[in-house]
Design a protein around this nucleic acid. Structure first.
Length: 794
DNA sequence: GTTCGCTCACTTTTT
DNA sequence: GTGAGCGAAC
């Protein structure tokens, strides 16, 4: 990794001694790290952080609040272990949840110790370490070498087949639901035999467990595992082969875990088994940031740590280095309403800064308009849009913002949409590549058999399946045999023969030509590229570009095989840095990030806290939602604005909304309430940010605007009027239809009648031109006003 | 085998 | 309001 090497240069500023206390041993990272005479990496740590770094022996739980330097502690601790010679890089097991976190840790350790971290093979995600363990011990858990990892599509395809075999109604018992159920069991470390009987009955009248067992058996036949198995099979390995476990006890002298509050039961068991060896396990986490209960995370793991690991030291990090006083105060005020927590009080030495702004709006489009206007304002004042973010509870909320930003030409980026490798075109392309390398992968074969359309449908596939099963061979082999016979219609037979011939040809080229060229060739010759070129949908162009990007990315790997191994585990690809943009993401997606300015729209009962969280998980659900709010506010360094609307389109229709209970939980002294009228905005902005609030009122909740809003909602609620006539709908306030941001484009190259294409809205015709803004009649999306830079000539 | 149209659901999402 | 997924019609 180039980045690491780059960093290592500055890090050489740390003086390194030529001689090591234990000179003569092989030059490992730890040996070289021993050269760090004075542990300068400890400089600048506060007492708590330092304690967390230096408490090397026995179990340690570091409760690290938001912005308290959690990653710094983890990485410094590793540097410390290395430099004191306690262990070598390959003797440290260090787990994270995401690839991104693992990558960051590697980089930061590299900076600290002054060189690349290739000597730490066991730093990675739970899953990547799981694969590593399984690749070394596959035969002990009934796998064959070169087993593959199923993605969600493959998983679903497999489950559908099983459901069909059981003749279950796909409507009544969707594969999706079964997948979730199985996932849940796997999260809890349950193999089919261990699933509580009652739970097996919730699916398909008691067939749930049997289907789970069948699924596992089928995966073994196909020599593959799903994500859950990467942990589950490790557990089995450790439990059934104590000698293997013992060897890892020997190996791992230190264990470090990031985001411990997000671990599920299976991960907890996994860690527990491994930690039985050295007992040197250090978990870093924050119970107040546990927001993944719905996917199996057990806050209990962190709450119970001291019981699970007797003699554990607990170190609290409460000094916050990120946010100003009022922001921290608001966040703490909210989280204090939670009962089940270990309790931490975040402090900051920073100034109090701006109060958290709370503002109500008429509806979601006004909310979007105002936030857009604020962002323009921010930009005009020299602010950096990269340092601003809008954090929403649910992704449908993004729509209003996207629409607004497109119209006003405010550049934005959506974070956390479908990841690169989850896109259909990427999965299809990868399936082709995988099959070229490994023709036995039946699920991939099924995926591309009729993509692009070749006239090979269910009937043909069923035939192939039948033959494959009868002869116990894989699908492509079955195809080969069948294509020799007269069983198939001539046309189908011909098509299949051609397809096989293509794969054979590509396979023959595997070693002969550069793999990037081969990949392009495969995509072209298979007709896959052509398929998208002929597609007229708005996204087709993007898809083609993604395919190009895939090929480019392929070039970063030595071989196709190396690439494919990477793909199955690492679903993300580093996003290109494409200029200044405001970020739009969900609250979940924002965890671990920080911004100067943060907008938190949609704080309304039912949306946030989300009704479903309340219905399905009751108080626990409410507390998780509250933690989500806490996470949201603590993302802000300098300015946070919470907003809610009185009316929101929920599904199809408008609903009147109540402000979130979390708003009332905000401590008044850290909050400023802006009058809900949009008209106050330009005024309110300046006031709210830079001056003492609402002179003349004891506190914000007495401001006329607030009262007015309260009265309005109360009226609506008490009267329980569904269709209460909305107050006279005022026209939106005069907004500066801004070319503030997109002002670079002064001349327009379009004229009325030109055909254009928009990334989101697809093809259209220019109807009107106003400066750099075009009114376009889109074929699918109707008439929209967009900024010129958002469309291309069509 | 493909396409059209109906029905349904609709929070959050990593690996 | 919208998109996915499925069954029925071409």
């Amino acid at each position: 990794m180039n980045t690491i090497r780059k960093h290592s240069e500055n890090a050489l500023a740390v003086p390194m001694q030529a001689e090591t206390p234990e000179g003569g041993l092989a030059q490992t990272i730890s040996q070289r790290a021993l050269g760090l005479a004075a542990p300068q990496y400890l400089d600048g740590l506060n007492p708590g952080q330092r304690a967390a770094v230096e408490a090397l022996d026995g179990p340690v739980l570091v409760l690290a609040g938001a912005g308290t330097g959690k990653t710094r502690v983890l990485t410094t601790r590793i540097a410390h272990i290395l430099s004191t010679g306690r262990a070598r890089g390959q003797e440290i097991l260090s787990v994270t949840f995401t690839n991104k976190a693992a990558r960051e840790m590697k980089e930061r350790i590299g900076k600290l110790i002054g060189f690349a971290v290739e000597g730490m093979p066991w730093l990675g995600t739970f899953h990547s370490i799981g694969v590593r363990l399984l690749r070394r011990n596959y035969e002990l858990v009934g796998l064959k070498s070169g087993f593959t990892i199923l993605d969600t599509d493959d998983q679903l395809r497999l489950l559908k087949q099983l459901l069909e075999a059981e003749k279950l109604d796909a409507k009544r018992w969707p594969a999706r639901q079964l997948a979730n159920l199985i996932d849940g069991w796997k999260n809890r470390g349950l193999i089919p035999a261990k699933v509580p009987e009652a739970e097996g009955f919730v699916f398909a009248n008691g067939k749930g467990v049997a289907l789970y067992a069948a699924y596992q058996a089928r995966m073994k036949e196909l020599n593959c595992v799903d994500f859950g198995d990467l942990l589950l099979e490790c557990l089995r390995l450790f439990q059934e082969h104590p000698d293997v476990l013992a060897s890892y006890h020997q190996r791992f002298k230190y264990i470090l875990v990031d985001e411990y509050q997000d671990t599920n039961v299976a991960q907890y068991m996994w860690l527990r088994l491994l930690a039985q060896g050295s007992k040197n396990i250090c978990c870093v986490g924050d119970d107040d940031q546990s927001i993944y209960g719905w996917r199996g995370a057990e806050v209990d793991n962190i709450l119970r740590f001291e019981k699970d690991f007797p003699g554990a030291k607990v170190i609290r990090l409460e000094q916050n280095y990120r946010s100003t006083g009022h922001i921290l105060g608001a966040a703490s005020g909210i989280i204090a309403h939670n009962k089940g927590r270990l309790g931490k009080t975040l402090r900051t030495d920073d100034e109090m800064g701006n109060k958290v702004l709370v503002q109500g709006f008429w509806d979601d489009s006004e909310e979007a308009r105002m936030i857009g206007q604020r962002l323009e304002e921010l930009k005009k004042q020299g602010g950096d849009l990269n340092n601003a973010a809008i954090l929403v509870r649910a992704s449908f909320q993004m729509r209003a913002f996207e629409d607004r930003f497109v119209t006003m030409g405010l550049p934005y980026r959506v974070i956390g949409g479908p990841r690169f490798y989850e896109r259909q075109e990427i999965k299809d392309a990868v399936a082709y590549l995988e099959l070229t390398v490994n023709p036995t992968n039946d699920l991939k074969f099924e995926r591309i058999l009729n993509v692009p359309k070749r006239g090979l449908g269910d009937a043909t596939l069923a035939l192939l399946h039948g033959h494959a099963r009868a002869r116990s061979i894989y699908l492509m082999q079955a195809t080969r045999e069948l294509a020799e016979t007269e069983e198939l219609k001539p046309k189908v037979r011909r098509t299949l023969q051609d397809l096989l011939a293509q794969f054979d040809r590509w396979r023959a080229q595997l070693t002969a030509m550069p793999h990037t060229d081969l990949a392009s060739m495969i995509l072209d010759e298979s007709g896959y590229t052509t398929m998208w070129q002929q597609d007229t949908s708005p996204q087709a162009q993007t898809r083609l570009e993604n395919l190009k990007e895939l090929i480019r990315f392929l070039g970063e790997f030595e071989t196709l095989q190396g690439f494919l191994e990477h793909v199955s585990l690492v679903m993300d690809v580093e996003a290109g840095d494409d200029g200044e943009r405001v970020s739009l993401m969900t609250l979940h997606g924002a965890k671990g990030l920080e911004f100067d300015t943060v907008f938190l729209p949609g704080w309304e009962e039912g949306l946030f806290p989300h009704q479903r969280a309340l219905d399905e998980s009751g108080l626990a659900g409410l507390e998780e939602e509250r933690r989500l709010g806490h996470v949201g506010i603590t993302r802000a360094r300098k300015f946070a604005a919470i907003s809610f609307t009185q009316n929101r389109r929920v599904h199809a229709l408008f609903q009147s909304q109540m402000p979130s209970r979390f708003i009332d939980e905000l401590p008044e002294k850290h909050v400023e309430v802006a009058a809900p009228r949009a008209g106050n905005l330009s005024n309110g902005y300046g006031q709210s940010r830079f001056s003492e609030p609402a002179a003349g009122f004891k506190h914000q909740y007495e401001t006329p605007g607030w009262q007015r809003a309260q009265q309005h909602w109360e009226k609506q609620v008490h009267a329980n009027v569904k269709g209460a006539a909305p107050p006279p709908r005022r026209k939106g306030p005069p907004t500066i239809e801004g070319d503030l941001v997109a002002s670079s484009a002064t001349r327009t190259s379009y004229k009325v009648g030109d055909a254009v294409r928009h990334e989101k809205f697809g093809p259209g015709t220019v109807a009107e031109i106003d400066g750099n803004k075009l009114t376009v009649d889109f074929v699918d999306a109707g008439r929209k006003r967009v900024v010129e830079s958002f469309v291309n000539p069509g």
